[in-house]
Design a protein around this nucleic acid. Structure first.
Lengths: 194, 194
DNA sequence: GTCTATAAATAGATAGAC
DNA sequence: GTCTATCTATTTATAGAC
């Protein structure tokens, strides 16, 4: 009858607030209010703000691994799995237009803050990178990591511009472009540039 | 014998600090110290932090217009001018790896802060977008704006990942890829996707 | 135009009662 | 485990002397 322990509710609330408002712009008071907790009791669960950030990143890493495992399981072949990645831009379109990519915006912010958790956050990118590279490798490409980084870069840029221009049609166009590029990559051993 | 007025020195310092540390993470004290000014005197020149941000964005807009005019003048044809855009990633490689793209990171931060200057900052993107779209149009493309947004998105994503992974070779590869894509677009009326 | 001193608000963090 | 009360540091911002 205690569905989610307080600690987990704090992490979930912080995860959401860090995404929507940014890490630095989110205060303890914001998180406490979101959970329905007093500021004082807060420190029983987390000693410092950086401790919460660590916990949020650990949670995001776990969530990401679970997502990739799900795609791995559900996708019948590597190409379908890569398409699943491309389609996050559609599935999360509203959130991305409102707040950008959770991974890209967090890493960018931590870089500005010169924060010690930078490397941990960057591992979120690495999870996608490694997973995508393996899918491309399974398709017989020996430049899987290069293709993975390229696709990751394009999806990041689409998220950034989608956030700035709030243009749904632009996102849809770019998703179709990525799909066409993937198809061309499958048909041709030396796919078209960009 | 007063080379740069204090107001301009404040704007220059804030511009640099906002880029390297982010807007919110930069305090008046930081800017004042960077200029060599007391905090008190600061308010003689700018009433609020938002006023400084406005001035910084105005400066960046002017700098960007000057840069685009220079490319317009120096490039012998639209293709060369687009190549000049692509090569910012090389020219500013060190800064981009350290702090990301000045435009993309500012717009992303202001979006998180839900800041009133969002639209003003987004105009920086629009300057590049409109300029690129015209170059593509001059090349006979009727989908100039689409191509402009696509190139802008890819360069944004490259900046984001360059900042996260600090990988110079990755940036070089993506620049070559963009150049190859541009060449293919020129040769073919229906260029390869992505 | 520049300075020192200071106000007022907020943020991170702690102590101790219940 | 949760609360109230409090401390300390920082930040934005103002007042007034020079």
């Amino acid at each position: 009858m205690d569905p989610t322990p307080t600690r987990q509710r704090i992490i979930d609330a912080a995860d959401d607030l860090f995404y929507r408002q940014g890490f630095e712009h989110t205060s303890f008071a914001d998180i406490a209010a979101s959970v329905g907790l007093s500021r004082g009791n807060f420190y029983y669960h987390f000693k410092t703000k950086d401790d919460i950030l660590d916990a949020v990143i650990v949670k995001r890493l776990a969530d990401t691994r679970a997502l990739l495992d799900q795609w791995e399981f559900a996708g019948r072949n590597p190409a379908d799995r890569i398409r699943a990645f491309i389609h996050i831009l559609i599935a999360n379109q509203a959130k991305i237009m409102a707040h950008g990519c959770p991974v890209g915006t967090l890493c960018a912010e931590l870089s500005k803050l010169d924060h010690g958790a930078q490397d941990q956050a960057n591992r979120l990118f690495t999870l996608f990178r490694t997973w995508l590279a393996r899918q491309f490798a399974l398709l017989g490409r020996d430049d899987g990591d290069d293709l993975a980084l390229h696709l990751l870069a394009l999806s990041q840029g689409v998220a950034t511009l989608a956030n700035a221009f709030r243009d749904k049609a632009f996102v849809d166009r770019e998703v179709r472009r990525m799909e066409a590029w993937l198809d061309a990559s499958l048909a041709d051993a030396t796919p078209a540039p960009i």
